[in-house]
Write a protein that binds this DNA or RNA. Structure first.
Length: 423
RNA sequence: GGAGAGAUGGCCGAGUAGGCUGAAGGCGCUCGCCUGCUAAGCGAGUAACGGGUGAAAGUUCGUUCGAGGGUUCGAAUCCCUCUCUCUCCGCCA
């Protein structure tokens, strides 16, 4: 959420930011409502002051056994007016809030301009795509041939776009989760976290999935809960409504969770394989930091995610999303894209974002500086470290052998109980 | 799922025949004094949000005693709804 004060003070800058990301929002309307809000508040506080002081007088009169009937009658009118104003105030406040909650974050100055995916900027490429002396197969063909993936039976159990792993495949998925968690906890200093996989509406609103994107979520029937689309949601909300101390920042969490996405509107896209599933595993990195540190923290977050790909010897590239391609809550996002030889494309495997105080304001996460009285919103960041199913797919495709077997990257062998090849 | 108890400041804990309680007392913490050191002792301070004013420190007003609504001139205290926690019973990995 944007700060209404900030909107008032930097109107033209914010308008420009919203325009850059193709958001059509009527800010002037919001400011008019806010003016009205202030008017009401002004009169209301005045009357409440009057009521408080006269109520004290009444108490004293009654104590002295004097007659207070006359002022009580008068105060009845004041009270009625207060009640009306209170209703008006809460109405206009929730109107303003409903509008503010629909405004996306403003892109950071370093974010390239652009309308769509096509305008994203390449940051760097790491690792050389291997030259195969045979036609590389798609991971779904490799996986089914090795009997470690079974999409057909998964569809029978549930429906399209659900995964079913067997044997060394299930083991590989689990190995990847452990491998990622170990590196992030032991080497990068994140605290391992295992959060709820179902969250309430408030948590979804705080991170920005709601109210705008409800159709992307799986809703639990009969209760206002949702399956999480990413660990970002429960983990960011850990510190909701809390005031942290400066000394405890930055706070780093890593969490493995399954992720559930309805993928509404993506029918026909990536219908085969592990790339776009309704349920997939992900290891997430979440940071809570001081505002002045957040862009440095974004760089290290990106490095932490890249480290996994480097150790697995998977070729990848990093891009900066342009303003038009940014997610709703993000001020700046790097995507890491892994090389998939069968399709001959780089595919997103991690998305690392700085949300600045956008989520913190919605979730009400603040901190207090050493020796200062004022509280301040922290900055939140998160990134995939990494999407496990897509990493699995990348390993199958990049490490496939002419005979259809798949070698296991060295770094992963200890996590595979010594298995160095799936055949 | 059934029965009961509860929710007050960083923590513990007073406060229910409505008014002087934003909230006693204690603990903790911060600063100062004292003191070979430590401990003890003494003194002061110690919620959030919003409005006004101020360059700022501050100051002043309003709101907040789980959340929302109601009664009343006035609610932490009375009434209603909801949420959460605890205890017992049932069920259960």
């Amino acid at each position: 959420m944007l700060d209404i004060k900030n909107i008032r003070e930097n109107l033209s800058l914010i308008k420009k930011g919203l325009k850059n990301r193709n958001a059509d929002i009527n800010l002037d309307e919001i400011i008019l409502s806010d003016n009205k809000r202030k008017e009401i508040l002004f009169e209301l506080e005045d009357l409440r002051y009057k009521r408080n002081s006269v109520s004290d007088q009444i108490a004293e009169l009654k104590k002295a056994k004097a007659d207070a009937e006359k002022i009580i009658l008068e105060m009845r009118k004041v009270s009625a007016r207060i009640k009306t104003l209170e209703k008006d105030l809460s109405k206009i406040q929730s109107d303003i809030n409903q509008k503010l909650i629909l405004i996306p974050n403003i892109p950071h100055l370093s974010v390239p301009q652009g309308k769509s995916e096509a305008d994203n900027k390449l940051v760097k490429k790491e690792g050389e795509p291997k030259n195969f002396d045979f036609e590389p197969k798609a991971h779904w063909d490799i996986g089914e041939a090795l009997n470690i993936l079974d999409f057909e039976r998964a569809a029978k159990i549930t429906g399209a776009r659900f995964p079913l792993y067997y044997g060394a495949g299930a083991r590989l998925e689990r190995a990847l989760i452990n491998f990622m968690l170990d590196i992030h906890t032991i080497e990068h200093g994140y605290k391992e976290t295992l959060p709820p996989f179902i969250v309430n509406r408030n948590s979804m609103t705080a991170t920005g999935q709601l109210p705008k994107f409800e159709e992307d979520l799986f809703k639990i029937k009969g209760i206002d809960y949702f399956l999480i689309p990413t660990a970002e949601v429960p983990v960011t909300n850990i510190y909701g409504n809390e005031i942290l101390t400066e000394a405890e920042l930055p706070i780093l969490h890593t969490a493995y969770t399954p992720c559930f996405r309805s993928e509404a509107g993506s029918y026909g896209k990536d219908t085969k394989g592990l790339i776009r599933q309704h349920q997939f595993n992900k290891v997430e990195l979440v940071k809570f930091v001081k505002p002045e540190d957040s862009y440095n923290e974004l760089e290290t977050l990106l490095k932490n995610a890249e480290e996994i790909l480097k150790r697995l010897k998977l070729p990848y590239r990093v891009i900066t999303l342009c303003a038009g391609d940014l997610g709703f809550s993000a001020a700046k996002t790097y995507d890491i894209e892994v090389w998939l030889p069968a399709q001959g494309v780089y595919r997103e495997i991690s998305s690392c974002s700085n949300f600045e105080d956008f989520q913190a304001r919605r979730a009400n996460i603040r901190f207090k500086r050493e020796g200062k009285k004022k509280t301040q919103f922290i900055h939140t960041l998160n990134g995939s470290g990494l999407a496990v199913g897509r990493t699995f797919a990348a390993i199958l495709e990049n490490f496939q052998q002419p005979n259809g077997s798949v070698t296991i990257p060295d770094a992963l062998i200890p996590y595979m109980n010594g298995i160095d090849k799936i055949e």
